[in-house]
């Protein structure tokens, strides 16, 4: 059975740090950065990237559409 791996890219400068994506992630991938972006917002990033399945939940709830999602199938 093929395993699914995903990854996200956050448009850091457009992230407003609302944190809604964090709770939407079923595999607990995301955290908020300690750093801030140009607007002074903490931004989302993948703390546990290996757990990402590319399920698109985070991008689905993101109010500013700052998340691009990638997914591949990896033969197990």
């Amino acid at each position: 059975m093929a395993k699914v791996r995903g990854a996200i890219v956050v448009d850091v400068e457009r992230c407003k740090g609302c944190e809604i994506c964090i709770g939407s992630c079923p595999t607990d991938v995301l955290r908020m950065s300690v750093d801030v972006n140009g607007k002074g917002y903490h931004y989302a990033y993948m703390e546990n990237p290996e757990a990402c399945t590319g399920c698109v939940n985070c991008a689905t709830v993101c109010p500013d559409t700052v998340i691009t999602v990638y997914r591949i199938k990896v033969p197990s």
Binding site: G6, T65, Y70
Partner: peptide, 18 residues
Amino acid sequence: ELRIEDIIKPENIVFKKT
């Protein structure tokens, strides 16, 4: 081990901004 860079490729996009 699969690297993040191997996943983040245009052909693997499943969601992007309209």
